[in-house]
Each structure stands twice: as C-alpha cells, then as structure tokens.
Nucleic acid binder design. Sequence first.
DNA 1: CGTAGCTTTGATTGTTTTCAACACATGTGG
DNA 2: CCACATGTGTTGAAAACAATCAAAGCTACG
Lengths: 251, 251
Amino acid sequence: MTHSNQKPLSLFLGRLLRRSELAQAERQAVLGLKSQVAQVRAHRDIVLLGDQVNSCCLVVDGLAARFDQLADGRRQLTALHIPGDICDLQSVVAPVASWGIEALTTTTVLHVPHAELKRVASEHPGLALAFWRDTIADASILAKWVVNLGRKSAQSRIAHLLCEMGVRMEQAGLGRRAAFAFDITQNQLADAMGLTAVHVNRTLQAMRGDALVRFAGRTVELHDWDRLARIAEFDPAFLQVMRGERELVDA
Amino acid sequence: MTHSNQKPLSLFLGRLLRRSELAQAERQAVLGLKSQVAQVRAHRDIVLLGDQVNSCCLVVDGLAARFDQLADGRRQLTALHIPGDICDLQSVVAPVASWGIEALTTTTVLHVPHAELKRVASEHPGLALAFWRDTIADASILAKWVVNLGRKSAQSRIAHLLCEMGVRMEQAGLGRRAAFAFDITQNQLADAMGLTAVHVNRTLQAMRGDALVRFAGRTVELHDWDRLARIAEFDPAFLQVMRGERELVDA
DNA sequence: CGTAGCTTTGATTGTTTTCAACACATGTGG
DNA sequence: CCACATGTGTTGAAAACAATCAAAGCTACG
C-alpha cells in the first residue's frame, strides 16, 4: 500500500539537510512523500540490471549497493548505500537503468514513485536543487572510487572504504566513525574494491595483525583512525557535507 | 572581457538537447550566457586541485580531463571532456572542488560564471532539470569507469575508452566513431586507465598488431569496431542519449 | 545436526609495475 | 641551420602484487 512513512523519510530529509538548506514547506513536502515499504533478504537483487523503474529506493535499514556486471557474471559494486540514502535518485530523470541494486544484508527499503519526487521537485525549486546536490555528492564518491581503484593498493583501498563508511555512518547518526555496523562479506567487499575475495581476506588479515581493523560480529572497529586515514590518504572533503550547520530533524 | 559567445555555447546547448527537451526561451538563455574565452597549453592545469572556483569550464576546442592526485604526485583522471562538455557543472552547487582540471592538448575553454548558470537555472526550471540530467550523464560514465578499473584487463579497459570516446565524438558531431581526433599521450592514457605508461605502450602494441587500433598523428582509427566493442564489453546505454529525437541547433 | 555459505590456507600462475636505458620526434635559441 | 633540451615512444629484465585453483575449517541458520 502506498502511504506516508514519516520516520524513514526523515532519514532522507536529514541527508538532504546535511548539504542543502530547506524551508519548512520543503521539509514537509519530503516528509509527506507517498511511498511503499519492502523488505529484501540479504544477497537478493532489489533492482535487476537493466530494469526500467518508476520509483526510487530509499534505504531505511540495512545495507544496499549499486552494481554493474560483466558478461561472465563478475560484479563490480559502484556505490554502497546506508539508511537515509536514495540508491538511484538519478533514475528520476534518467529512468533507463544501466545498473542494478543489491541488498548486501537484509534490508528495508522504501519505494518512492518517480511521480512523487517529480511533483515535489517542481512545486519546490529548492528541492530540485537539493536533489541535484544529492546526486552530485554520490558522483563525488564515485570519482574517489575511480582514484582508489586506479591508483591504490589493496590495503589502501580497503582503508579508504572503511574511513568513508565510518564518516558517512557518523554523519548519518548511525554510529561512531571508529565503530559502526558494517555487515558485509569478504566477497561483497571484493566486489566493491575490484579484488578477489581471497586477496581481500589476506589483506584484512594483515590489517588485523597490524591492529588497524577488527570485524566483530556485524560491526567493524577501526582501532587507529589516524594511521588508517594516512594509509588511505583519506580526506573527507569529497563527502561534501556542509560544515557546522548540520541541522537535525525531529519528525 | 565577459560577453556572449554564441558559437561555443551552441556546442553545449547541443549536448543538453541530446538528453533534454528545451523550449525556445530556454535555448536562448543558454546561448545568451555571459562568459570569457581562454586558451590553455597542453599539460597545463586549468583548475588546480582543491581550488575554489566561481565559474565552470566549457571545452570549446581540444581535450580536457578532470583528475585527482595522490600524495606522491601520481594522477588518476576521472573524466575526459570534449568540445561541448562542461567539465565541472557540479561546481555550481558544490563549489569546493576536490578535483582538478588539466588540458590534455592545447585547449580553448569558456569560463561561465556560476552566477550566470544559477540565474538561468532559477529563471527556467527546465534548464535546472537539464543541468541535473547533464550531471547524471557524467556520473553514469564515472560508474562505468569504476567497473572498467575494478574488473577489466588493460586491453579491455583501453578498448572501452576508445569505444566511449568514439561514440561521444560522433554524437557531438566531431568525427566518426571509427576515426576521430584523439591527441592523447600514452602517459595521459595511463593516468586515465589506472595503468603505467609502459604497460599502456605494450598493450597498444598488441592491439595494433591485432589490427584493432591505430594512432595516426592526432587521430585514432578503430579498424574493427565490432571486435573492439566485444573485447570491451561495450554497451552505449550508459551514455544516456535520447534515441532518435536528437534535435540539432544552428545558432 | 546437517548444510550452505563464509573464512582461511597453500601452491602456482599471471598480470602489471618498476627501473633503467635508448631511439625518436619536436621545438627552441644561438 | 645546427646544437640542444625536452618530452614521447619503445625495449628488456626483475620484482611485486593480485588472481586462480583447490581444499579444508568454521559458523550460523533452519
């Protein structure tokens, strides 16, 4: 059933507010978006590669990933999405998907129809701008991934991803950067980093032995943030969050 | 001096029209953008890494690239830009650059002030949408680069880039996909593909011996498009051009 | 408690990098 | 017009990094 889901939508609103200032009416428009909840089990595809979609996926709980796939079935993840993220906001204006979306863990998503998003964007130009900015933030991460895949060692890549996720989780209010929920298999990690699962395994072992990282249950702990950031050459600027004025919302 | 440069701007308008329908008034607004011409010699940086900019770079002639850089100076290109492209449209709403722009060949650029772009975007919501779509098209290429860097061999990567550039040049009316101007050094190619110049050299030799590619002066010739596309697993869908309805402009 | 998926291990192979050197073209100033 | 510097393309040998293949433990879940 399609109806208003204020609590999950306030997560998304929070994400928008980290990068754009929105008037009260605009905030209400976001919270009033009609949408539909769904649960997806781990390892299932939420959007199939090449699907034509008419709604966006807002992650409410869990972890999702955008991916592309080669002819032989090998996958490359192109983005990780945490609660509050819309995985495919770009599909609103470019509905021919050349990607797929996969649930990495059991994930709750909100399907928000394109029609709803188009409506609020045209009624509130400030929202159109905020959506544009949101897309740009995703693209900025994508550009950083290109650098990591193109020029960094396995260890540096993994370190960078961990730093990225730590800061994002912290910003989203979902944990501390030094310890946060990150329930990902080494296979999935390999698909994100352009490596094999075996090599990810050995690299993680080395990092663990070096007291840099520990996966504990569904959580990851970063024991030495500074050293990890140095190995990763991590500079959070690319995450494009407005400093200071992080207004939070209580819906 | 800042003034109207209709001819170069019509290149950009053409690019917008390949993905968005624009009313007459919106087209005129684009052509009327105030801007400033500049020439940059090959290998010079147009925008320094981390610069705060207040204008966008529209490529009029030549070849430019967006890049990021590691601490040791090694570069990774994250996008190639041909005439008609705006290298950093995203900077309009995210002016803190976490990237640089480099002239690969001697390049003519048009500096279009953010203020101008913001003005036309707010006066014409259709343009704001077209800008968003343009950003998304760039991001879609970026996602494809992630896949190439993460999961493909040197030869497949290079083949994919050549196919991508061929189709883009053809769409922009700047050549045929099988033969187009591409005046890039093997060093620059290496920076784009996440390889070393030495390995690019050897890979190109193999492809040349295989009658796939030939660099002749400042142009490249793709002698067997189908085979090249197969090696690259190239599917042009990610370039997100509206099929058929490619309206052209005469300014 | 059995099973499927995940992590770990070892041995081997293959791709790509690194380092060093040389050939070749291009453009510049004397 | 030549001498020279610089950047670009090319080659070879060695080393490093990551992939591949195969198999064995481990864990979580039904």
